[in-house]
Amino acid sequence: MQLFKNLSKQTLSEITATAWPMAFNAILIQSVTIIDLLLVASLGDISVVAFGIAGAIIAFIIGIQFAIANGTQLVLSRAIGAGNINKVGLEMASGWVINLSFSLLALIFLFFAIEKIIDLITHTEAVAIQAISYVNISLCLLAFSSLSQVIVVYFNASKKSRIPLYGFLVEIPINVICSAP
């Protein structure tokens, strides 16, 4: 056990204090999808299938946003750890530019190609119409998602991971209220 001989209780508690809100955030993000699915389920099979198709497409885009944000977090952590405020600002701005640029490109691509993509996935017109509608609604959130991801990783890199947690705790009831028929 030579590997763990320098591991202190303070290090373990710092890691735990930073990690548990991040883990809870991940659970909350998934719970939003489950809540949305439960609300859509009452609309019937076609709506559930359309939601699944649209959700997979949007999850792919948001997954790339998360990857860009995670890369930003790695760079931000170094700048914050070094206490270099100018570098922190530069890394934040760079993360936003990269994430927003990707989101804009994805938005433009999906705006023009979503019908063809969904036609490749389903051959049922009713499902395709609803899936296109769900994707178009979700496209409005891509820019906001890219901005919020960079803000979240700033707090995570600053060891203030509870702040995004509080935001998600407010977001879930708002999502339910907005999504409820």
Rank of each mutant, 00 (worst) to 15 (best):
M1H: 11
M1Y: 05
M1S: 11
Q2W: 06
S8R: 10
K9G: 07
K9A: 13
T16Y: 10
A17C: 03
W20P: 02
W20Q: 09
M22G: 02
A23K: 09
L28I: 10
I29W: 01
V32H: 03
T33F: 11
A41W: 00
D45Q: 15
I46Y: 02
V48E: 00
V49F: 01
A50K: 10
I53Y: 03
A59I: 11
I61R: 05
I62C: 02
G63F: 04
F66L: 13
I68K: 12
A69W: 02
L74D: 00
V75Y: 08
V75A: 11
R78H: 13
G83Y: 04
N86F: 12
G89M: 06
G89S: 07
L100P: 00
S101C: 10
F102Q: 04
F102K: 08
S103F: 05
L104S: 07
I108D: 00
I108Y: 03
L110Q: 04
L110V: 12
F112L: 07
I114V: 15
I117M: 04
I118Y: 01
D119A: 14
D119T: 11
L120C: 06
T122R: 10
T124L: 11
T124D: 04
I129H: 08
I129T: 13
Y134V: 04
V135Y: 01
N136K: 15
V153N: 05
Y154F: 13
F155W: 09
A157H: 06
S158L: 08
K159S: 13
K160R: 15
R162W: 12
I163V: 14
P164T: 11
P164V: 12
V170L: 12
E171T: 14
P173F: 05
N175Q: 08
I177N: 01
C178K: 14
S179F: 13
